[in-house]
């Protein structure tokens, strides 16, 4: 039994069909590969075939996904029938730095936890508050407001069998200067951390030092590479830096950037990490190709170090 199980973070944009019943006819409508990306049936089969047994769903998909299947439980069963389980869901704790928003933020977090439970998931990877531009730098009171809200959500989540994992983006209000201090302000019993390997590296964290320091708090990973670690403040704090005007990508498949994944896996072995490793390929023009490319790197480079 492997210590690490691999999952895929769902960045498929809205998938319109559960299962296309007329695959061949649909293909012949325009003789393109669109039909290969039109239904959940095939997308789940692709990731299962490539060894990604879990899927982390995205909250922005729920409005379409839930009516399509009828309920979260129906999607859970549909995925399970194809050998894929829902690991959890991403969540944004927007505006949690605002004291007056506490009740609203916590309620939204609790609702998200309840949704995850219906999907059968156990992780809620949570980005605290909003982008740096417009709110940063946060003062001590605002950081404390964030921690209070995240702790309340975390306490509720734990009671439901779900782990909240903090997930910082490189452009978020809680940025390099506050990153570790904020973690220390949260409750270690109920608030954990999901390391997005590229995001924290772009932010300026040393990936290996960060994991080595916080190994006991780590509830999961978003596995992706970057070619641009330690972005300068003027990029991280700019307005909407995630999608660049010229299409420059911040994120690449593991092995296609510069991050030290061999070093990370050596540390995973040192700390005997057990849990999900969730591949995230946002920014890729071809998620299937990215998944296959990543699988090759995992099998040939990473698994020999620690499985």
């Amino acid at each position: 039994m492997s210590n690490i199980r691999y999952a895929n973070m769902c960045h498929w944009k809205v998938v319109p069909y559960a299962q296309v019943p007329n695959f061949r006819d649909f293909y012949y409508e325009d003789n393109t590969n669109s039909v290969y990306y039109a239904d959940w049936d095939k997308l789940l089969k692709y990731q299962k075939a490539l060894g990604f047994d879990g899927i982390e769903i995205a909250p922005w998909d729920l409005a379409d996904l839930t009516p399509l299947f009828g309920s979260p439980e129906a999607f859970r069963d549909f995925a399970a029938a194809r050998g894929v389980e829902v690991t959890g869901m991403f969540h944004g704790a927007h505006a949690c730095h605002v004291k007056e928003k506490f009740d609203e933020v916590v309620q939204a977090g609790k609702d998200a936890v309840d949704t995850i439970v219906k999907f059968g998931g156990t992780q809620m990877n949570t980005c605290p508050t909003d982008n740096y531009h417009g709110i940063g730098p946060l003062n001590e009171e605002q950081l404390a407001n964030c921690a209070r809200a995240i702790n309340a959500i975390g306490d509720y989540a734990i009671s439901k069998g779900v782990k909240v994992g903090l997930h910082n983006e490189f452009f978020c209000g809680i940025n390099l200067n506050e990153h570790r201090r904020f973690i220390e302000m949260t409750n270690p019993e109920s608030v954990f951390y999901c390391i997005d390997t590229a995001q924290i590296s772009l932010m300026g964290e040393d990936l290996l030092d960060f994991y080595d320091t916080y190994a006991d708090r780590i509830s999961g990973f978003h596995l992706k590479d970057t070619a641009d670690p330690s972005l300068p403040d003027e990029v991280r704090f700019s307005k909407d830096p995630e999608i660049q005007d010229d299409g420059k990508r911040w994120f690449w498949e593991p092995g296609e950037g510069v991050l030290d994944f061999k070093g990370l896996y050596a540390l995973l072995k040192k700390h005997q990490y057990k849990g999900w490793m969730t591949l995230e390929t946002d920014g890729s023009p071809d998620y299937l190709a990215s998944m296959a490319l990543s699988r090759y790197y995992i099998d040939t480079v990473l698994k020999p170090i620690y499985d």
Partner: peptide, 14 residues
Amino acid sequence: HYQEPNRNRYETRQ
């Protein structure tokens, strides 16, 4: 709105 290969390019100013 919907999944299709290469659709991410639609999100760039370019």
